[in-house]
């Protein structure tokens, strides 16, 4: 029971974006996709969401091709946070968050739904914004609102035997350092609830801090995957990003970091 992309290749207008990618994301694990711009991280994530119908038979979720799920069935077991979340209509923050309950709103009472919305808004510390017009929020507040909506989708039921998956495309791009850590530790907490999380993160130190599995992509191919020590090696960083640096994790008391060589 996991999310598996097998032999996944995608090209747009003849330009290959993913080449024979193999990826297995387990529930109870935080898988972080890293790689330079244009490496194919978002494309891989979108393929896992089922956005590309042509390749959806190369992605399976809990042992079944995602092509065989209906949109409503998929929505019950996987939630997605995309990179773009602008909206031209003046919904309030709580209206946006409530939309996350669409997949199961016929199964629960109004009070339960209000409680879910309240909980996830507390979690993302946006409760004070609940009456505000979404369009007037700052970038980080918009991102936290959308994250709360995505969380609401998987909040119910709290424990479930069927593994569920949360896919996050750069969930921390507009967030301050406190909220970056908060979002990823939340993702980590979710993995205790039989939820697998796949996230695209650019900050290598942040990724190393939280990930159970790192997947390094470049030019549409998986270069290497595994623990932070294994993936963030000097020759990988040089080859993929063109930067010279080392992975440090001096003691369990401090968090691991990637430190770059000083400019000569």
């Amino acid at each position: 029971m996991s999310m598996i992309a097998h032999d996944l290749s995608i090209s747009f207008m003849g330009k290959p974006c993913l080449k024979n990618v193999q990826l297995t994301a387990e529930p109870n694990q935080l898988t972080v996709l890293i790689g330079p711009n244009g490496a194919g991280k978002s494309t891989l994530l979108k393929a896992c969401c089922g956005d590309f119908e042509a390749v959806s038979n190369h992605v399976s979720l809990n042992g079944k091709n995602i092509a065989q799920y209906s949109a409503a069935e998929l929505a019950q077991i996987r939630a997605v946070m995309t990179q773009s979340y602008e909206m031209g209509f003046s919904f309030t923050v709580s209206e946006v968050v409530t939309m996350g309950c669409y997949a199961f709103e016929h199964l629960i009472t109004r009070q339960d739904m209000a409680k879910i919305v309240r909980d996830v808004m507390n979690y993302m510390s946006i409760s004070h914004l609940h009456d505000q017009n979404f369009m007037t929020l700052s970038g980080g507040e918009k991102q936290r609102t959308q994250l709360a909506r995505v969380l609401a989708q998987l909040w119910f039921p709290y424990q479930q035997d069927t593994p569920r998956f949360l896919l996050l495309d750069e969930p921390t791009s507009s967030l301050d350092i406190y909220h970056q850590h908060q979002v990823l530790s939340l993702a980590k907490t979710l993995t205790n609830r039989n939820i697998g999380v796949i996230a695209v993160v650019h900050d290598l130190s942040l990724a190393a801090n939280f990930a159970d599995q790192l997947v390094l992509l470049n030019h549409g191919e998986v270069i290497t995957q595994g623990t932070a020590e294994k993936v963030l090696q000097r020759h990988h960083l040089d080859k993929v990003y063109g930067v010279k640096g080392d992975f440090f994790h001096s003691s369990p008391d401090v968090q691991p970091t990637v430190l770059l060589d000083s400019i000569q």
């Binding site: 956005d51 949109a71 998929l74 929505a75 209206e95 939309m99």
Partner: peptide, 21 residues
């Protein structure tokens, strides 16, 4: 009415929430 609300989030987003866009 309800699916149309979700549709305003974006087509992909609505699909992810369970709407047959």
């Amino acid at each position: 009415a309800r699916p149309l609300n979700l549709y305003l989030l974006g087509e992909a987003q609505a699909e992810h929430l369970g709407v047959q866009v």
